[in-house]
């Protein structure tokens, strides 16, 4: 899936999709599908593919409310975030205990095995697994901002728009979430 640059080309594709062009919407799905799926996976684990598909269905019907000329990612991530929170609420799993095997937890254990190739298996270092587990144990409020910032690479401004929160709140959440991760990773740091 190629990345859709947030440029005039993206604006044109979104405008076409808004006008009902199905091919244009398919391009949006291709461009953002992996990121939305990844976000849903990090937030909810199991059922992420269904959740991500539902996010795009919601996007399709919400495109009329999208302000043309703006970046799509905050708008899309807002839908994804709210959808994931709804899913978490339905499952009644407000936070995920470390190494739990609950529906939404144990992300580290539930990342699909990247495949049998030895190179990819080697990539999954001890640190990677520890971060996976630590992320799974964070409350959704911290997990969401850390995934948006450090996994999806959204700016503070975009996260603030996606979560409908003031920038200062986003910053505090990122700092606190990162501090929690730091505490969990400290045993892995040799001093």
């Amino acid at each position: 899936m190629q990345d859709l640059a947030e440029t005039q080309e993206e604006s044109a594709i979104i405008a076409a999709a808004r006008a009902g062009d199905e091919d244009a919407f398919a391009k949006i799905v291709d461009a953002y599908g992996r990121r939305v799926f990844s976000y849903c996976w990090r937030m909810c684990g199991r059922g992420a593919e269904d959740l991500a598909q539902e996010v795009f269905v919601k996007l399709y019907f919400a495109l009329g409310q999208f302000e043309p000329g703006r970046a799509l990612s905050p708008f899309l991530f807002r839908i994804a975030h709210n959808h994931c929170l709804d899913a978490l609420r339905r499952r009644r799993v407000p936070t995920v205990p470390l190494e739990s095997d609950s529906e939404c937890g144990g992300l580290g254990a539930r990342i699909p095995d990247p495949g049998p190739t030895p190179a990819e298996s080697a990539k999954r270092s001890e640190v990677g697994r520890a971060v996976d587990k630590a992320m799974g144990s964070l409350p959704p409020a911290y997990r969401s901002v850390l995934v948006m910032r450090h996994v999806e690479g959204l700016s503070y401004e975009e996260i603030s728009e996606a979560l409908n929160l003031p920038m200062a709140t986003v910053k505090i959440r990122i700092h606190r979430g990162r501090e929690k991760l730091q505490q969990m990773l400290r045993p892995l740091v040799s001093t």
């Binding site: 992996r34 990819e120 996994v151 990773l185 740091v189």
Partner: peptide
């Protein structure tokens, strides 16, 4: 380490 590891988390594909 946390920031670097987050950026390198395996990206699951749909």
């Amino acid at each position: 380490l946390a920031v670097a590891a987050l950026a390198e988390l395996p990206a699951p594909e749909p």
